[in-house]
């Protein structure tokens, strides 16, 4: 597969994952703002921005609808949903011949939908519906990607993008939320704490899955355990890292070129961090540092993939 094409598929996938994450977190945050808890709208908004990895740029100005509109539709701002969908489509457009027509049509329809007058009108009447229909569009795209595309290298690069983006985003989210989780736990019996915890789970669409594993008994350490270490739930970081490892192995199998030791050991280290640690050990240490290390590892893996598969030097390639 052409390196440029692999790169585009990877980024198409990352952008869509990012759009999905933004939509979901915005939806959850706006839901939490409806309840009169002790947490102010401003705090919630800045926490939302922090967990999206945007610490600056969109300061709270009191007008939730306008700010939400910017976060959804402002195609100039890199944080916005539309920006991500544009990015995904632009990448897809550059590899039109690699993806299936169904994939392209889904993504193109989503793009036109986000840019339509109806979307603006719908947003005025119900923000929630707009967000839901955006999510639907993304889910449909993922569905047709899995069912209409050859599960070859291209598809593996799509998975790689999806899982890397997701592990990074989940680690960021947990890093932002984790200090608060344990602070308020003791004295709270009003139900707000419960709402907060459910909110965190909902940000990762994991409320129902969590209940299946742990029942509706919410506790911060279990939530952390679930989102970090569960091996069966697609939004848990452990699961994503397994996915990354599997995708790299498949790419190597189909192409026959062995990934460099740096890359395999980087993934292996991340895998070991999540596979051979208990939540007790993590909480005994510095959770923040642990989460931060995961993010750093993700970035490192991204760089290595880029350096090895996309932007390698001609000399090294000719030497083989």
């Amino acid at each position: 597969m052409l390196s440029r094409v692999a790169d585009s598929l990877y980024w198409m996938s990352r952008y869509l994952e990012r759009a999905e994450n933004t939509v979901r977190q915005l939806d959850v945050t706006m839901g939490l703002m409806l309840d009169t808890s002790g947490t102010s709208a401003e705090t919630r908004w800045s926490r939302l921005m922090a967990s999206l990895g945007k610490h600056t740029g969109m300061e709270w100005n009191g007008d939730l609808e306008a700010m939400a509109r910017t976060l959804v539709f402002d195609s100039i701002s890199p944080a916005s949903v539309t920006f991500c969908i544009n990015g995904a489509r632009e990448n897809a457009r550059q590899v039109r011949e690699e993806i299936s027509s169904e994939q392209w049509q889904r993504l193109n329809r989503l793009f036109h939908q986000m840019h339509s007058q109806q979307a603006q009108a719908q947003f005025r009447s119900s923000i929630n519906e707009t967000l839901t229909s955006a999510l639907d569009g993304i889910h449909l795209f993922k569905g047709v990607s899995d069912t209409t595309m050859i599960h070859g290298q291209g598809w593996q690069f799509i998975r790689l993008g999806r899982y890397l983006e997701r592990s990074y985003a989940t680690a960021t989210l947990l890093e932002v939320y984790s200090p608060d989780l344990f602070q308020v736990q003791e004295q709270d019996h009003s139900g707000y704490q419960y709402l907060e915890l459910v909110g965190l789970l909902r940000c990762c669409t994991s409320f129902e899955a969590y209940c299946q594993v742990y029942t509706a008994d919410m506790s911060p350490d279990r939530i952390l355990e679930f989102l970090l270490l569960n091996r069966d739930f697609p939004h848990a970081i452990r699961y994503c890292v397994d996915g990354i490892r599997d995708a790299i192995e498949s790419i190597q199998r189909s192409g026959g070129r062995r990934p460099p030791d740096e890359l395999t050991s980087g993934i292996g280290r991340l895998h070991a961090m999540l596979g051979y640690t208990t939540i007790g050990e993590i909480l005994a240490g510095d959770t923040g540092v642990f989460l931060h290390t995961i993010r750093e590892q993700c970035m490192r893996i991204h760089e290595l993939i880029y350096r090895y598969y996309v932007h390698y030097s001609i000399q090294s390639a000719l030497a083989i």
Partner: peptide, 8 residues
């Protein structure tokens, strides 16, 4: 040559 994920 073209640059591919498997080399040139």
């Amino acid at each position: 040559y073209m640059r591919t994920t498997d080399g040139l």
